[in-house]
Structure formats: structure tokens, C-alpha cells
């Protein structure tokens, strides 16, 4: 069990920080943009529903990169580091590590370039290198406009129907999961069976990544948490992949 998978219902936390800015430091915008470009240039887009000629895009990026890859970096962290670091700090570490592990850059060149920028304010303020093929940016725009729908044909009829009571399996999340840990072992009612099947692109150890039904489940808070800690008249809905559920 990793604490970052089990956030729901933690006690003893601070008041909400209601900061409404998206980026609280200017540098955070840059890592968001880099991640989005990686999503738009990922090698798996050749198999996507939109017509992406991804093999013909003149980028040197030839890797598979999805939300699953990004999330695995954050979910795999030491739990105290997960909470010590801000959202985009986790992205920066995970994305830098990916470019190094895939051999696009080395740790040494990244460290050396970082040190140079920290020591030399003129270089830190200088513009980025210029250039690059316009077709790369055309693909990025096309991705933003057309996306990457995970909807697929149903491989088999859904196991559950509206009104069924189901139990969330108690399984290990592995490196990356789309099952909130605080739901494990708890009962819920199926309120909607989404049409079709959904892939996740990224195969996880706990079984998502192939097309399967997804359900909207309604949980009663007092079934998950002690009643004294819950509030009256509230319902908690969660979209859950079929592989995470078992019949009651």
C-alpha cells in the first residue's frame, strides 16, 4: 500500500489552500508544456483512433509516453517525498528521469547545463535555442485538437449491470494503479455502465491497459469511513475499471 494511492479520507490535515492559479511559479509552465508535447509525440499514437501519421513526424522522440508513465513516476516515489514535493516538482523529476533512462540525454549533461544556468544569470535570462521542424508543432496542435480517445469495442459483455452491488477488490496497486486505495474491499452500487470499453494505453501490473468496461459506482461514505467521521446526506461516485471489481 502506498500512501499516495490512499489519500481519500485522511484525517488531521490543514485547511484547504484555495490558491486558484494554475502555475504558482513561472517554471512550472515549461514542464507542463514538455509533458504535453511528449503526449502528442508518443509512438503509440500511430494506433490511435485519430489519424496520426506519427512515424512521419520529424522528431527524435520515439518513445511511448502517456499519463500512465507520468503518474507512475509520482506514484512510485517515497511517500514522504510525494507530499514534500509540489505537483509540478514531481513532474520535473519524473520527466527528466525518463529522458535520461531512454537515452535522449545524460544525467551529466542535464546537471552541467542546470549548474551553468544557476551560476550565470546572463545565460539564465538568454532565450532558448532556436529552430526545429514545423511538422513537430503541427502534430502537437493536431493532438490537442483531436486527442486520444480510449474508447474501444467491447471485448465481452459487461459483467455487471445497473443496480448491482459490487465489491472493490483488495489488490496491490503495483507501480501504478487507477484504483483509489481507500475504496478497496468496499461495497458500491453500479449506477451506470458506460457504453463501450475503455483502454488505458499503458499496461499496469494490476490489470488495466486493455479495453474493458468502466462503471460509475456510488459509494456510501459511512461504508468506507467510520460514521462519526462522515457527513450527512452525501454520496461518493467513482469511475472504476471492471478488472478492479468482483461480484458480492
Amino acid at each position: 500500500m502506498k500512501l499516495q494511492h490512499n489519500l481519500g479520507g485522511l484525517e488531521g490535515l490543514d485547511p484547504i489552500n484555495t490558491e486558484t492559479q494554475v502555475f504558482v511559479e513561472p517554471w512550472e509552465q515549461r514542464i507542463f508544456g514538455i509533458h504535453t508535447a511528449m503526449m502528442a509525440l508518443s509512438n503509440h499514437l500511430g494506433d490511435s483512433l485519430p489519424d496520426y501519421a506519427i512515424e512521419e513526424v520529424p522528431t527524435e522522440f520515439k518513445s511511448f509516453w502517456t499519463w500512465g508513465h507520468l503518474r507512475m513516476g509520482a506514484e512510485g516515489m517515497h511517500p514522504f517525498d510525494y507530499f514534500r514535493l509540489r505537483y509540478y516538482e514531481k513532474w520535473l523529476g519524473g520527466i527528466s528521469g525518463f529522458f535520461i533512462s531512454e537515452g535522449y540525454i545524460t544525467q551529466e549533461e542535464l546537471d552541467a547545463r542546470t549548474a551553468e544556468l544557476l551560476e550565470n544569470s546572463a545565460k539564465a535570462a538568454a532565450p532558448l535555442p532556436s529552430g526545429g521542424a514545423a511538422e513537430i508543432d503541427a502534430q502537437v496542435l493536431k493532438y490537442l485538437q483531436e486527442g486520444d480517445s480510449p474508447l474501444r469495442e467491447l471485448p465481452a459483455p459487461p459483467k455487471f449491470s445497473v443496480g448491482d452491488r459490487v465489491r472493490v477488490k483488495n489488490i496491490s496497486p503495483g507501480d501504478h494503479s487507477r484504483l483509489p486505495g481507500h475504496l478497496k474491499g468496499h461495497l458500491a452500487e453500479v449506477v451506470l455502465v458506460y457504453e463501450g470499453a475503455f483502454t488505458y494505453f499503458f499496461p499496469t501490473e494490476d490489470g488495466i491497459g486493455v479495453p474493458m468496461p468502466v462503471y460509475s459506482l456510488a459509494f456510501k461514505n459511512e461504508e468506507i469511513w467510520p460514521e462519526s467521521l462522515t457527513e450527512p446526506n452525501s454520496l461518493y461516485f467513482n469511475d472504476i475499471f471492471e478488472v478492479y471489481l468482483e461480484a458480492v
Partner: peptide
Amino acid sequence: GIITSNTVDNI
């Protein structure tokens, strides 16, 4: 050659 000088600004 992974992204261009405009990629992040465009996004």
C-alpha cells in the same frame, strides 16, 4: 530535435 523552440510556447 525532440521538440522545437516554439513547442512549449504554442501549447
